[in-house]
Amino acid sequence: MSATTGNSWLSSAVEPGAPIDRRDKPQKWGHPFTYLIALLFIGGCIAPVLYIVLGGFRTNSQITTSPADLPHPWVVSNYSNILKSTTFWGEFANSLIVAFASTAGIVVLGLMVSFVLARYDFKFKGAMYSLFAAGLMFPMVIAITPLYIVIKDLGLVDNLLGVIIPQIAFGLPTTVIILVPFLRAIPNEIEEAAAIDGASRLGFFFRMVIPLSLPGVVTVGILSFIGSWNNYVLPLYILNSQANFTLPLGVQAFSSQYSADTAKVLAFTSLAMLPALIFFSIFEKRIVGGLTGAVKG
């Protein structure tokens, strides 16, 4: 093929006014000031965490004399002693029970409520959706006193259920707001085809709705788990005995008991927050994808 023929073929292949594919061209870097601000923000977020983790490998004298230096020598006994403690693992188990139970309740109930709000028309549908949206502006701290009275009347004080049930209730607004757009985006043609094939409403829900809305379900599940794991105010009011403490309460109790041993307190704090950090780091892309993605028909 001659050069003239090749050029004429190329010019005919690209129509006038057609968009040019620029995917192969290198992307331009942004302004350096933007990256500087981003690095400062990242450093401000990571620095306290690193200080707490490294502080657990120091002695109290090291923290007092050189708080900004690396541990020298590294003291591993602060962490090993806590990992040998039955109290720590008991509080860890309580946190797992509360987090998994709360997450399961939030995801299951939130998915069912979102399905009804997204796929069916009924009276006061808009008012119900607005009620869940208003729940985002009603933090648990405001309702903690009447909530404690209700929990006390139910006989759930110093009981893990007294923490799980309110967490499910307060986690539903965020779940509904996230999941309703996912369920609305499912094409009606899919539901009609499922009905023609003989699938009931429940069959369509389990076979089609849940798989198609899985990114949103994973997102709300991760957010619910992390929020439950880090919850401090509700367990503080509801749980009294140390046998039922979750890790946030365990950190507070440990800090009071060993207030003079700063290094050991930092080690306990590091171990308490480590599971949530690992969990969030693993599923970070899932959270972003679930919040920004859309269901494809």
Rank of each mutant, 00 (worst) to 15 (best):
S102V: 14
R119P: 08
T103E: 09
T5I: 05
K285F: 05
L236E: 02
S241L: 09
Q242K: 07
V53T: 06
T103H: 02
R119V: 07
N230L: 09
Y148F: 15
F124H: 08
V108I: 15
P211T: 14
T59I: 06
L274R: 11
G216N: 12
F280P: 00
D69L: 06
K152S: 02
I42T: 12
H31D: 13
R23N: 13
Y237I: 02
L154T: 00
K84W: 12
F100H: 01
A68S: 11
S77G: 09
I196V: 14
S102G: 12
A185R: 12
A118H: 06
Y129W: 05
V176C: 11
A294I: 07
R286E: 14
A169N: 02
L40Q: 07
V157I: 13
T4A: 09
N188H: 04
K84P: 01
I282W: 10
W29Q: 11
L147A: 06
K152A: 00
S255V: 08
G55L: 14
L212K: 11
S224R: 12
Q252N: 05
I238D: 00
R23C: 08
Y258I: 10
Y51N: 10
E192G: 03
K285T: 12
N188L: 08
S95W: 05
P146H: 07
A263K: 04
A294G: 09
L96G: 06
A38I: 06
S102L: 05
F33S: 11
N94A: 02
M140G: 03
H72F: 15
R207D: 11
L160A: 00
F245N: 08
G56R: 08
T292Y: 08
V76P: 00
V14I: 11
S130D: 04
G56A: 10
M112V: 10
I97C: 01
I63Y: 04
L234D: 01
F41C: 01
Y120P: 08
F245K: 01
G203F: 10
E284P: 00
V220K: 05
R184H: 09
G105M: 11
V295E: 02
L179N: 05
K152G: 00
V163H: 02
M140F: 04
L183V: 14
S255A: 09
S2L: 02
P71Q: 03
N7F: 11
K25M: 09
K296C: 03
A195V: 13
I52C: 15
D158F: 01
A294H: 05
L266Y: 03
M273G: 11
F100R: 01
P139T: 06
N60D: 09
Y120W: 13
L247Y: 14
